[in-house]
Amino acid sequence: MTLSTRIWALHLAVLAALLAGSVLLPAYHQTNVAKVMVLATYAMGYNIAFGYTGLLSLGHALFFGAGLYGAGLLVQHAGLPAGPALLAGILAGGAMAAAVGLLALRTQGVAFMIVTLMFAQAGYLTILYNTAWTRGEEGIVIAREARMLFGHDLSADLPRYLAAFALFAAGLVVKLWLVRSPTGRVMIALRENEERSRMLGYDPYARKLAALVISGLYAGAAGAAYGLLFGYVGASLASTQYSILPLLWVLLGGAGTVLGPLVGALSMFYLIDYSSAFTTASLLVVGVALVLLVLFAPRGILGTIRERWLKWLP
């Protein structure tokens, strides 16, 4: 088996397993895994910026929120159907990432983190400020009639699972293709040594901006899908916590691995789900996980596996 076949076989097998979940999983877990797949799509986008290009952003909630509200507000106030609203959400995420990137990418490292954090905070406050449209913290509940895609009711379990799967599968395939393409190689080169890639003739600013916009498109798609699939568009989904969560999932699963975001989001979701049986301290789980990860496993689950055993893992 050649390397390329092996890589594609592994990723298609993961997708096949997720697809099998649509018939094998009981209803409760089906809803959970659908949610995890949407959030993992968000984390895959985060991984393209952070894991592959080395851009540690603390403001991705702004892009997720742009998709969420871009789709949600159009459905709610303009009566747009779910399909075009989804597209609008994706574009809103990309456009927001381009706007933020144009300014924020003039800075580096810690300054980049704080600038993105501040932009996201300004976006969150803007949502709260325009309560008349967004209904602030309380949020908008999208009616069932508005959540129809190609004649399928997205509020029902099976169509929702399949829609989340389609989103995740598309994201995964594009990402796998991207990171193994020449463009992806340049992204990794920028992460490893920006000066050397500049010397080789690549424009770091333009390349980083492109990576951030792709990342924003993913975040926007995940945000729009989240609103349409689960019927809720609220300010808490655009708060700082939603910038931290994809960072946590990517760190846990393995930064710079294609499947890492899925592994991270899935394990974190079920860790909190199971721990909620005997403690309500979910914030503690998140906090302790972050501290332990940076201290003892900075490469995450798949990063460690790649380092020890599977050197070929993309």
Binding site: V110, L283, V291, L295
Partner: peptide, 28 residues
């Protein structure tokens, strides 16, 4: 925590975010 991370900028930010959640939960 911080000393063991050698005060590496990005790692310390992630660690202090973790600390933020731990302290918040402790207060709650």
């Amino acid at each position: 925590v911080l000393k063991r991370l050698n005060y590496e900028p990005e790692a310390t930010i992630v660690a202090t975010i973790g600390l933020l959640y731990i302290l918040q939960q402790a207060a709650l």
